[in-house]
């Protein structure tokens, strides 16, 4: 069992008018086998939290800690975090011209595992995972994310999630921009990975729609750079009914 622990995390970004604090004291603990949903309005800092966990250089941690089984994640470089078992499914995956999916997947898998995967098994695994996510086999020969539709990019993120088998997955608005079919396919992928019993998930979303497919045990309402309220799955139902307004007013009043 693994634990990802975020304690009183404060994060700033550099803007034209000087540093701006985005995360204002986030605390969160996720264990293997758990799915936590983070729900919040646009601009509340959800992507900032996700990118900070992954180590994006734009975000400066001014105080607080992130640890993975007690190890200081903030001390690790971006690639070290991935090799330690953290995975970020990005909100906007970038295109990498000239690097084929096949080459990329094998290179990343080799880096994460510390050894090249057995060629025979690997090819089979990739094929099966692509089939499960209804990704056309021709994508293997295409360049990473190049010319992929929004939905295709998200499927490919989940493809990586299934192949790289991280300890913790952070999914940044993986549901946005997906039609109902794609949403189902992508959710099934996340559930397959979660059902292995070896992963914990931080599911970041703006809408409750994806929660019909992925069932979190914990829901955190995220407003203005911190967790405004935490609860069980029922909190999502209340959000569905009431929207974020109540929390935003509370945050503004605080």
């Amino acid at each position: 069992m693994s634990t990802l622990e975020i304690k009183d995390l404060h994060v700033s970004i550099e803007t034209e008018t000087g540093p701006k604090e985005i995360l204002k004291g986030v605390s969160l603990t996720i264990n293997t086998g758990e799915t936590h949903a983070i729900m919040g309005p646009n601009g509340s800092g959800k992507s900032t939290l996700a990118s900070t966990i992954a180590g994006h250089p734009r975000y400066e941690v001014t105080s607080g800690t992130i640890t993975l089984d007690g190890e200081d994640v903030l001390e690790m470089s971006v690639d070290e975090r991935a090799r330690a078992g953290l995975f970020l499914a990005m909100q906007y995956p970038v295109e990498i011209p000239g690097v084929t999916m096949t080459n990329f997947l094998r290179t990343a898998k080799t880096a994460i595992d510390g050894e090249a995967p057995s060629l025979r098994h690997w090819t089979k695994d990739v094929k099966a995972a692509m089939e499960n996510l209804k990704i056309d086999p021709s994508f293997a020969a295409r360049n990473v994310n190049e010319g992929f539709s929004g939905g295709e990019k998200k499927r490919v993120e989940i493809l990586q999630l299934e192949l790289f088998k991280p300890k913790f997955a952070v999914l940044d608005e993986t549901d946005s921009g997906l039609d109902v079919d794609a949403l189902r396919v992508v959710s099934e992928g996340v559930n397959r990975a979660q059902d292995t019993g070896t992963m914990g998930t931080l599911l970041i979303t703006h809408y409750t729609r994806i929660l019909q497919y992925i069932k979190p045990q914990f829901v955190h309402v995220f407003v203005d750079g911190k967790v405004a309220e935490s609860g069980g799955a029922e909190l999502a139902d209340r959000l569905e009914a009431e929207g974020y307004e109540r929390f935003e007013t509370a945050a503004a009043g605080a």
Partner: peptide, 29 residues
């Protein structure tokens, strides 16, 4: 492109290898 670099490194690929992949990819297009 730092975002490309971040993407590859976030998949466990070391900075030096990620840079080489990107330059190769840039030219291979």
């Amino acid at each position: 492109d730092d975002e490309q670099l971040f993407y590859l490194m976030a998949r466990g690929i070391e900075e030096k290898d990620a840079r080489e992949l990107i330059v190769r990819g840039f030219l291979h297009e």
